[in-house]
């Protein structure tokens, strides 16, 4: 319940405050959001499996975001930023799909 309220609160904050993203961080934001989504779906699956641990969630959330941003940063430095961020998005997308499939099996048995 508190988690849902937190999510809504974040969306509301983002909508009302309209935070400015520094121009240097702009390319990393979409990757970071997708990485965080992956962490959240992973956590939801773990919760339904009964093995959820908030410490693990925090670490996976932060490290996911950090590593995704790092890969993109490295890619930018190597001159393959566009390709690498596409790759990261694809990998994270696949993970999100598999996690959602597990959640679906838990909730609907289908």
């Amino acid at each position: 319940m508190i988690a849902v309220i937190g999510l809504l609160l974040g969306v509301g904050l983002g909508l009302f405050l309209k935070p400015d993203v520094p121009i240097g961080l702009e390319p990393y934001l979409p990757i970071a959001v997708v990485a965080a989504l992956d962490a959240v779906f992973g956590a939801a699956r773990a919760f339904l499996d009964g093995i959820f641990d908030d410490r693990v969630f925090v670490v996976s959330f932060v490290s996911n975001v950090f590593i995704a941003a790092l890969i993109v940063f490295l890619g930018d430095k190597l001159g393959v930023g566009a390709q690498l961020s596409t790759g990261v998005i694809v990998v994270l997308g696949i993970r999100i799909f598999s996690n959602v499939a597990a959640i679906r099996r838990h909730l609907f048995h289908a």
């Binding site: 988690a3 937190g6 904050l13 309209k18």
Partner: peptide, 15 residues
């Protein structure tokens, strides 16, 4: 803790 992280995620996504 989950709520805090989700709030960050929501704000970032909306932005």
């Amino acid at each position: 803790v989950v709520a805090v992280l989700l709030a960050v995620l929501g704000a970032a996504a909306v932005t």
